[in-house]
Design a protein around this nucleic acid. Structure first.
Lengths: 185, 185
DNA sequence: GGGCATGACGCAAGAAATTTGCTTTAAGGT
DNA sequence: ACCTTAAAGCAAATTTCTTGCGTCATGCCC
């Protein structure tokens, strides 16, 4: 008894997962996403196709996994000593990363192969965490700070919406303006 | 010379297109999206699979087409005699349509099979048009009105962002609040 | 109104992909 | 060290996708 499902984070499973993710990244760069196939990834990763099908279901879910990995922020947002500067800079960087062709591709992939919406939720959580860090720092300095949800609505959402639906004419200045308006108005 | 590509809007092409679209809608309702395949749609539409592959490329682009058709608004927004009421009601309806399981599925499909981003742009244009109608009406009444772009950023974008990335806990009240804040603050 | 050029569809064969049952491997607990 | 079992390998069966070619119907011109 007491048989909880076995979790095996270290070992072969992990090696396979990494090999497959690496293969996806390499092949995406080499042949481009439209030419990418599961058997191709499997061959590069030194794995049988059925392994990929069983673990990920299909190419989209695999791409979604890889995309989310890339979308995870690597460091907390820079500290400029004042919330307005923090947020302005972060928003500009965020837009530039996400609006680039590769950024947009990752976002689309992340949303795409994600029936449960788990990966999408994760992306949103990353952004919320970054915003939360900036707000907490500012509050610690005694600044008056808005809600995380407010900043999501006023800064993150417009940037994401425009990237997904109207990618033309996006500039860093737009992101900075959103940040300013979120704090002043 | 002077041979522009022949467009044949009436006739067989159109019949095939409608038959295929209808088949997609019916089968989506009957067997669900995950089970849907191109050969299945072709059979229902009384068409060979190769026709679908040639015209649409793959299932995702077809689904994207069908989705955009459903996302097109059927009527201009209701007129309540005051911008605040117009916008509040419209935002609430918009959220409720888009946040439903079928609405979300359509949105995802529209974004999904759309390498060029044309369909996504179309969706955004629909929303902008609806907003523009309300603002023009209000301006005609002498009300002071914000920019279309502002309303997009403050109302449409947050709703869409949350539907795509954090579908939990969305209510009509949230949409109404966004509308109010877009006009007052 | 009757041909003509052309784009779209049907058909069928071939290639590629996905699925699936069974076997083998190796991680982790006893 | 041994067992148990999740996960990977392998290969056959199935399904989907691609492609070349013949046919059909539409829109234009006479």
């Amino acid at each position: 008894m007491s048989r909880r499902p076995m979790v095996r984070p270290g070992g072969r499973s992990t090696r396979v997962q990494q090999a497959v993710h690496t293969a996806v990244r390499e092949l995406q760069a080499e042949v481009g996403r439209p030419e990418l196939t599961v058997p191709m990834v499997a061959a590069r990763a030194g794995v049988t196709p059925s392994t990929i099908y069983r673990r990920w279901g299909d190419l989209q879910e695999l791409l979604s996994d890889v995309a989310v990995e890339h979308l995870r922020p690597e460091a907390p947002p820079e500290d400029h000593g004042r919330l307005l500067d923090d947020l302005r800079n972060w928003a500009e960087q965020f837009l530039e990363e996400m609006a680039s062709p590769t950024g947009r591709a990752y976002m689309r992939d992340a949303l795409l192969g994600d029936p449960e919406g788990d990966n999408a939720g994760l992306c949103s959580a990353y952004a919320a965490e970054q915003v939360g860090t900036m707000l907490a720092r500012a509050a610690g300095r005694g600044e008056e700070v808005p809600d995380v949800e407010t900043v999501i609505d006023r800064v993150v959402a417009p940037v994401m919406y425009r990237i997904l639906f109207r990618p033309d004419g996006l500039t860093g200045a737009y992101a900075r303006r959103l940040a300013e308006e979120a704090l002043t108005r």
